[in-house]
Design a protein around this nucleic acid. Structure first.
Lengths: 125, 125
DNA sequence: CTAATAGTTTAGCAACTACGCAGATATTGA
DNA sequence: TCAATATCTGCGTAGTTGCTAAACTATTAG
């Protein structure tokens, strides 16, 4: 989409508070509540770590227990456990306890599409 | 998908290095190169900030200059400029210079779908 | 040229994050 | 019950991030 009040002359300066307050007002009006963006950021930040990305990708092949994930990633079980807690709190993964082993699996069908879109974007560089 | 070697008995302990090394091996083999996950994380981390999410959402309504974005978000132009650099480096936005005004707009059609998927995920809580 | 304006960059600081370590918890086999 | 195992939690440290203030660049008006 192109701005209707598209600036074409150099007189269109950026002192928008006096020249284009309407454009700012329009954009402000379209914004949703702050909590929406906070949630968005929180959701994405769960995926913004390479080890968590590896965890999710590994879980696409089926559920895995904590120590298997630790072995796959090559980090401590403690670190994996903490990553899994973050992912679990945001409902990206769920867990199933079997004896003293806890198996984790993906909990949302959106995750695959998100990864694919992100990879597609990164590939276009 | 369900594990083919799905553990069903308590004898299936988690000492995978001796009991289920194959499962770990399988998952390790499926992993892509480290740089892929680093890129994924980098891509998502660009969206993992509420102000950057607001910037992107604002730009969906059309291009805006830096000071307009600053006014919309209610933060300094410097802060906006730094956010825009991050988004630009990852090709989420592009800029167009007109006189001394720099207009930013979205540079990737994937971004809308990503936000929608993330919002859909967050909504399902 | 000079002053003013829009934007960028840099330095510094406070807040946050990921990790390993050590200890706590939960579950099972003997 | 006791020892072993799998996981989780609390804590300290190193590294990262986002913001402000100030300096710097680029462009334009006079």
């Amino acid at each position: 989409m192109v701005l209707s009040s598209h600036p074409e002359t150099l007189q269109d300066q950026c002192d928008l508070r006096t020249v284009h307050p309407d454009r700012v007002q329009e954009a402000r009006a379209k914004l949703m509540g702050d909590h929406v963006y906070a949630e968005l950021a929180e959701t994405f930040s769960a995926l913004a770590d390479s080890n968590r990305a590896k965890i999710i990708y590994s879980l696409m092949g089926g559920e895995l227990c904590v120590c298997a994930l630790a072995a796959v990633l090559g980090v401590s079980e403690s670190a994996v456990s903490q990553h899994l807690r973050i992912l679990r709190n945001l409902r990206w993964v769920r867990n199933r306890k079997h004896g003293r082993v806890v198996y984790y699996s993906l909990d949302d069908e959106h995750i695959k599409a998100l990864l694919e879109l992100s990879l597609a974007h990164a590939a276009g560089r």
